[in-house]
Simulated assay, not measured.
Amino acid sequence: MLVLDDYGGHPGMQAAEMLIEKGAEVEVVTPERFFAPEIGGLNHAAYAKALHQSASRITINTQLKGVSRNGNELLVTLGGIWGTDGDPCGGSCGRRTRHPADGRAIF
């Protein structure tokens, strides 16, 4: 499941932790240079441990560029936060990931 954490606080990390506890594989995506910068060091360690102990991953310096439906899936386009002419990373760093269209992408 994709958790887009554009805020950098507890809500995104709590959602990710809850999904991990339910057995989901989670990807936390943030435009920040590290995940959850607003939560403080002690809390950061606990969330990092939960993410590390699961099959989840953290993607930094990345933002949501678009979402489209493809049958029973959502096609999520992610891209870098830097670039020229409005094209993130000059067109070299965008990637797409698929998520079921049943509400499993959390924004």
Results as ranks from 00 to 15, higher is better:
residue 19 L to D: 04
residue 61 N to A: 14
residue 27 E to K: 10
residue 75 L to I: 14
residue 76 V to G: 01
residue 41 G to R: 08
residue 71 G to S: 00
residue 32 E to H: 15
residue 78 L to M: 01
residue 60 I to E: 12
residue 99 H to W: 07
residue 6 D to I: 08
residue 34 F to V: 10
residue 69 R to F: 00
residue 31 P to R: 14
residue 90 G to A: 04
residue 78 L to W: 01
residue 87 D to M: 11
residue 24 A to Y: 11
residue 91 G to P: 04
residue 17 E to T: 08
residue 78 L to R: 01
residue 14 Q to F: 00
residue 23 G to T: 09
residue 93 C to G: 03
residue 96 R to K: 14
residue 34 F to K: 07
residue 107 F to P: 01
residue 86 G to W: 04
residue 97 T to H: 04
residue 17 E to L: 08
residue 38 E to K: 12
residue 61 N to W: 12
residue 26 V to C: 09
residue 49 K to A: 13
residue 104 R to T: 09
residue 103 G to H: 05
residue 61 N to Q: 12
residue 19 L to G: 07
residue 97 T to R: 05
residue 82 W to Y: 05
residue 51 L to V: 14
residue 100 P to W: 07
residue 72 N to I: 03
residue 11 P to A: 10
residue 32 E to R: 08
residue 50 A to F: 05
residue 9 G to N: 09
residue 53 Q to K: 12
residue 84 T to H: 15
residue 28 V to T: 03
residue 19 L to N: 04
residue 15 A to W: 07
residue 37 P to K: 04
residue 2 L to W: 09
residue 46 A to M: 15
residue 1 M to S: 13
residue 73 E to K: 10
residue 2 L to N: 03
residue 6 D to P: 01
residue 52 H to C: 10
residue 41 G to K: 07
residue 28 V to C: 06
residue 5 D to S: 04
residue 80 G to F: 02
residue 26 V to N: 06
residue 76 V to M: 07
residue 39 I to F: 12
residue 1 M to L: 08
residue 40 G to N: 03
residue 107 F to D: 15
residue 59 T to A: 12
residue 57 R to P: 05
residue 3 V to G: 05
residue 18 M to V: 09
residue 54 S to K: 05
residue 60 I to G: 05
residue 67 V to L: 13
residue 8 G to E: 11
residue 26 V to L: 05
residue 68 S to Q: 14
residue 69 R to P: 01
residue 54 S to D: 13
residue 34 F to M: 11
residue 86 G to H: 00
residue 6 D to G: 08
residue 58 I to Q: 13
residue 81 I to G: 03
residue 73 E to I: 03
residue 7 Y to T: 08
residue 104 R to L: 12
residue 5 D to M: 03
residue 76 V to S: 01
residue 23 G to D: 06
residue 71 G to P: 02
residue 72 N to V: 02
residue 50 A to K: 14
residue 61 N to L: 15
residue 35 F to I: 04
residue 50 A to N: 08
residue 31 P to Q: 15
residue 41 G to T: 13
residue 105 A to D: 02
residue 19 L to W: 12
residue 26 V to P: 07
residue 9 G to P: 02
residue 77 T to I: 00
residue 92 S to W: 01
residue 1 M to F: 13
residue 4 L to G: 12
residue 14 Q to I: 00
residue 95 R to N: 01
residue 87 D to K: 14
residue 3 V to K: 04
residue 42 L to I: 07
residue 15 A to M: 14
residue 94 G to A: 12
residue 41 G to C: 03
residue 79 G to V: 05
residue 70 N to I: 09
residue 29 V to S: 12
residue 31 P to L: 13
residue 48 A to H: 13
residue 52 H to Y: 14
residue 25 E to A: 06
residue 55 A to S: 14
residue 47 Y to P: 02
residue 38 E to Q: 11
residue 22 K to L: 13
residue 57 R to C: 13
residue 105 A to R: 03
residue 105 A to Y: 06
residue 27 E to P: 00
residue 89 C to R: 03
residue 8 G to M: 04
residue 53 Q to H: 12
residue 5 D to A: 01
residue 104 R to K: 11
